[in-house]
Amino acid sequence: MPHSTPAFSPAADLAWETTGPGVRRTLVAYNDDLLLVKVEFETGAVGALHQHVHSQISYIESGEFEVTVGDETRVLRAGDTFYAAPNVPHGVVARQAGTLLDSFSPMRLDFLPA
């Protein structure tokens, strides 16, 4: 069964879910090939090191993050991006409260509501 959001998704209609201490996310838009997720972090919150079969590109909308991709760690700020190839470990720590826009290809079925 194909998955897709409507053509338009007003921000006021987005549902937020807490994913860990100081972290919440909302599914902005998706279809079977692509998923866009907005993730908000409080200062000090952690997106634990993990890996998955999806390609991930993340855009730092605001804040400051210590980002690890593979064996490299950098500090990224608003306007910066990072790419995590499939099965490459990656994670973040919010040095300042901020927001990431994460895109995944293909779409992550595990993020969809039950």
Rank of each mutant, 00 (worst) to 15 (best):
M1P: 14
M1S: 08
S4K: 05
P6Q: 10
F8A: 05
P10R: 01
P10S: 01
D13L: 08
L14S: 12
T18C: 03
T18W: 07
G22D: 05
L27V: 15
V28R: 08
A29K: 02
D33A: 07
L34K: 01
L34W: 11
L35A: 08
L35F: 10
L35K: 02
L35C: 11
L36D: 02
V37F: 02
E40M: 02
F41S: 03
A45G: 06
G47F: 13
L49Q: 10
Q51C: 15
Q56L: 12
S58Q: 02
S58P: 00
E61L: 11
S62G: 01
S62C: 04
S62L: 04
G63C: 09
E66P: 03
V67N: 01
T68Y: 02
G70L: 08
E72Q: 12
E72A: 10
T73G: 00
R74C: 11
R74P: 14
L76R: 03
A78K: 09
G79W: 12
T81E: 09
T81K: 05
F82W: 13
Y83G: 00
Y83W: 14
A84M: 14
P89Y: 03
G91F: 04
A94Q: 07
R95H: 08
Q96C: 08
A97N: 00
G98Y: 05
T99H: 02
L100W: 06
L100F: 06
P106V: 13
M107Y: 06
L109I: 15
F111G: 15
F111Q: 15
L112A: 02
